[in-house]
């Protein structure tokens, strides 16, 4: 009975994680999702996810509840993008570059 339940939990999790679009080749994926049965299958609403690569570098940290707002989210970090944008802005506003 326990083995069967363990297998079910594994399958449910793999189904939920497998639906994520940005899985790394090697790494870890931590998710929190609301699951609901619809027409014989489970639908997952992933409201929190954290994806890291094999070196432990965080690739993406999302709270999907904020996804649709279009504003900058505190919970979302795009590695190697934040710094580039900041540097770019500084260079544009730097009068010495003229």
């Amino acid at each position: 009975m326990v083995e069967q339940r363990t297998k079910e939990l594994d399958e449910t999790n793999k189904q939920a994680v497998g639906q994520l679009p940005d899985l790394p080749k090697n790494g870890t994926v931590n998710i929190k999702a609301k699951a609901r049965y619809k027409e014989g299958s489970i639908q997952f609403d992933v409201y929190d996810k954290k994806i890291s690569d094999s070196e432990g570098k965080e690739l993406r940290l999302d709270s999907d509840r904020n996804l649709d707002t279009g504003s900058v989210k505190e919970g979302t970090i795009y590695i190697n993008q934040t710094k580039d944008i900041e540097n770019g802005e500084k260079q544009e506003n730097d009068p010495k570059d003229n």
Binding site: A16, N26, G27, V29, N30, I31, K32, A33, K34, A35
Partner: peptide
Amino acid sequence: GFTLESQTKV
């Protein structure tokens, strides 16, 4: 429905 929390290795 239910809430699912997991840590998965890829």
